[in-house]
Amino acid sequence: MASQGTKRSYEQMETDGERQNATEIRASVGKMIDGIGRFYIQMCTELKLSDYEGRLIQNSLTIERMVLSAFDERRNKYLEEHPSAGKDPKKTGGPIYKRVDRKWMRELVLYDKEEIRRIWRQANNGDDATAGLTHMMIWHSNLNDTTYQRTRALVRTGMDPRMCSLMQGSTLPRRSGAAGAAVKGVGTMVMELIRMIKRGINDRNFWRGENGRKTRSAYERMCNILKGKFQTAAQRAMMDQVRESRNPGNAEIEDLIFLARSALILRGSVAHKSCLPACVYGPAVASGYDFEKEGYSLVGIDPFKLLQNSQVYSLIRPNENPAHKSQLVWMACNSAAFEDLRVLSFIRGTKVSPRGKLSTRGVQIASNENMDAMESSTLELRSRYWAIRTRSGGNTNQQRASAGQISVQPAFSVQRNLPFDKPTIMAAFTGNTEGRTSDMRAEIIRMMEGAKPEEMSFQGRGVFELSDERAANPIVPSFDMSNEGSYFFGDNAEEYDN
């Protein structure tokens, strides 16, 4: 993207840094990872977990959730003011799984939030270390993106479920800051804005008074975040219109849905970061690795190297396929839920299948599930090659597409044709070009129609051997075009429920 120079890199967003050079960025990201790792080690000690239990991804998720809940100030305040039966607002906890007599047992633990905050700050040299908290939120978000298709949420806001490739980060909490905003897809931002506008339509006082002023500035800020994701002048001009509207209503909703559809071809720039579970960072720190000293990046080879040398386990339900569970977590670790499966298959070195073909449910185990038949197995999170994460949407291309997802959002900077089903997408653009945004709409449609099938995206960008740390010898991959490109292809993934 041309304006790259004016933006802070995501590592800076990730670490609240002012302008830093590459070495400083690597050190501050490393410091953040160190903090998460030290916190995780301490929690495993508190909970008396064995090494194996500490490497269980379900335990990692519970521990991450506990610290996120302990620092969720708004919710904590709300819980104190609106006490609900049987919930102690000062405590947080969740299921911890232990191996007892050759069987997995679930144990519900409860801790004072104050105590968890103390352990977290102690692991982070006394700081609140917001960057580390956001990092864990993005890992949870990436896992949700890989596990669930947001059909219901899309339909509720009037969008087409086939636009799911635009929904990265749709389950990120509001408090995820600049680093969170960077990884949100165009569809996620559109959905947040539509929800806001709908509230304004239904509630006369939404934009009024002292609160209304705050609401208005939040609305304009979200519009600017979305505008910054678009790469064409016409899309940005249309966002200006939406932002400046005196009284946002149905016309703005129409414009936003139009823009979301246009992003299936004229893709937005959305950041991709490899955020790993805390149970990967903990053992690495415990083994003596100093992330701050060595430096770390979320968008280069580092996460690949770390996963190459990590042992992570997962509980497996009786009829689940461990290899499929591994694929789910591998995609989440690489922030690749909406990437082209052919690119992923090449990088991973084994075939990556669409969601609907995987015999696996989510990673988390519900409290009512029976533990008797639970097994555990090693997650295979290694890769054959590594590639640089991208934040450009890439230019655009036609490809055989599917009944489910009709476009992709690249996660890796790797040369390819970008699949999208042009006739299906263009069919949504018939007729409606009147109104105050008509010239911009016409211009956007013209650009979409001009998108050429034979153009290559990320020209000359390749993948790298894991021994090639400096990215000196790019390998331009070859793809098996007979395979499906979309992950949520004609899909039956479970729906995400809060």
Rank of each mutant, 00 (worst) to 15 (best):
L466R: 03
G349C: 08
C223G: 02
I475E: 09
T6Y: 11
L226F: 15
G54D: 07
T134M: 10
P477K: 11
R416W: 12
S376H: 05
I365C: 12
N395R: 02
F464E: 01
L306Q: 08
G288L: 10
A493N: 10
G404Y: 06
S345Y: 10
I475H: 07
T157C: 13
I265K: 14
M13Y: 00
I388H: 10
C164W: 02
P419F: 04
R221Y: 12
R243C: 14
G17H: 01
Q241G: 08
V67Q: 10
M32Y: 10
K103N: 02
Q399N: 08
H82T: 01
V414K: 06
D497G: 15
K229N: 12
A182V: 14
Y496P: 11
N483V: 12
Y78M: 08
W386S: 01
L166I: 00
I445C: 12
S274R: 10
P419W: 10
V363R: 13
M426N: 13
M447C: 09
A181Q: 00
N473M: 09
Q405S: 10
I444N: 15
G94D: 10
W207I: 10
N224M: 07
V414Q: 03
A181T: 05
I116P: 03
H135T: 04
H82K: 15
N483K: 15
F420T: 01
N21H: 05
S413C: 04
N211S: 15
I475R: 01
M43T: 03
L79S: 01
T350D: 09
L266G: 07
R121K: 15
L49D: 14
L344D: 03
L358C: 08
S84L: 15
F206C: 14
A70W: 09
V285T: 13
M481G: 13
T15N: 01
C333Y: 13
R342M: 14
T360A: 12
S402Q: 12
G212W: 08
A129M: 00
Q409D: 09
G86E: 04
N21E: 09
N250C: 09
R174E: 10
G35H: 14
W104C: 05
E220Q: 08
K31V: 01
S335Q: 12
R199P: 05
Y313I: 13
M32S: 13
R195V: 13
C44S: 14
M239N: 12
W139A: 10
Q399W: 14
A451E: 01
G450C: 05
R348H: 15
L133D: 12
A403I: 03
A336R: 05
R382K: 05
Y52M: 09
P283S: 00
G169D: 04
W330L: 07
Q20M: 07
V299Y: 10
D127L: 04
A233Q: 00
D112M: 09
M13K: 15
T215G: 15
A22Q: 08
T62N: 15
M159I: 05
Q231G: 01
S467F: 00
V408T: 00
Y148M: 06
I388W: 10
Y52K: 01
M374A: 04
G435C: 11
M32C: 13
P95I: 12
E434L: 00
R246K: 00
I388N: 10
L381A: 05
Q308A: 00
L344V: 06
E210Q: 04
N142D: 13
G431C: 00
R208F: 12
F458K: 07
G185F: 10
D421T: 04
D302E: 07
H272E: 08
K98V: 01
K113S: 03
E244D: 04
P477G: 11
Q308Y: 09
M447A: 15
E210L: 08
E292P: 05
G132W: 06
I406R: 15
M481Q: 15
Q231I: 02
V155A: 07
F304Y: 12
I201Q: 03
A427F: 01
G394V: 05
A411H: 07
S297E: 10
G126L: 15
E469H: 02
G37V: 04
R221V: 12
V67T: 02
V343C: 12
N250P: 12
Y78H: 14
L306C: 08
R348I: 03
V155K: 00
A131D: 05
V183A: 14
K305R: 02
P419S: 12
R348N: 08
A278T: 08
D480G: 13
M105Q: 05
G35F: 07
K91R: 00
G295Y: 10
V414C: 06
C275A: 12
Y281I: 07
R38K: 10
G288S: 04
I119K: 14
T424K: 04
R38D: 10
M105G: 00
E369Q: 04
G93L: 03
P95E: 01
A251W: 10
K214P: 09
N397E: 02
S407F: 10
M481V: 13
T215A: 14
M191W: 10
G404Q: 05
P83N: 00
I63K: 12
K325P: 11
D72S: 03
S176A: 13
M331F: 07
N368P: 00
P95L: 14
I406K: 15
I116C: 14
E339T: 13
S467D: 01
E107P: 07
E369H: 11
N368V: 14
G185L: 08
Q364K: 03
A471C: 06
M448F: 12
S287N: 14
I116S: 03
S482W: 10
H324R: 06
Y148A: 11
D480Y: 05
F479W: 00
V299C: 10
T350I: 07
G450N: 00
P477R: 15
R208M: 08
T15D: 07
R213K: 01
D439R: 02
G37L: 04
P318R: 01
Q364L: 01
A403W: 12
Y111A: 15
C333R: 15
R174T: 03
K77E: 05
L79P: 12
E254Q: 05
E18N: 00
I301F: 13
E46R: 03
M481T: 14
R26Y: 09
A442V: 09
E18Q: 08
T23I: 06
R348F: 12
I445Y: 07
I365G: 06
D255C: 11
L108A: 00
F420M: 15
A337P: 05
H272C: 08
Q399Y: 00
V183C: 01
G187K: 14
M239W: 05
L49I: 01
A22Y: 02
G200Q: 07
R391K: 01
S84D: 02
F71P: 12
F412E: 15
S69T: 14
A237K: 08
R162M: 03
G93T: 15
E53A: 06
K90I: 01
R391W: 03
D480V: 06
K48S: 02
T92S: 14
E484Y: 08
D16F: 08
Y97I: 06
I265L: 02
K452C: 09
A323R: 06
A403H: 01
V242L: 01
T215K: 02
T130H: 00
W104V: 10
I36E: 10
L108R: 01
R400Y: 12
N492S: 06
I119Y: 10
R213W: 05
I63Q: 01
F304C: 09
I425V: 13
N368Y: 15
D51T: 00
E192D: 01
E18Y: 00
I347D: 07
L315K: 04
R361K: 14
E434W: 06
S217P: 14
E244T: 04
A286L: 03
A263S: 06
N144G: 11
Y487R: 13
E455H: 13
S335C: 04
E380D: 15
V183T: 06
G158H: 00
I41T: 15
T157I: 14
N202S: 07
N211Q: 15
Y219G: 08
Y111E: 05
T151I: 13
T62K: 01
Q149S: 09
G132K: 13
G94C: 10
A85D: 00
Y111S: 01
W330D: 02
A472Q: 02
L68M: 07
L276N: 12
M447D: 06
V329E: 12
S335A: 00
T15G: 07
A263E: 02
Y296I: 13
S3A: 00
A237C: 12
R162D: 06
T437L: 07
F39P: 00
N309A: 00
R355I: 10
P173T: 12
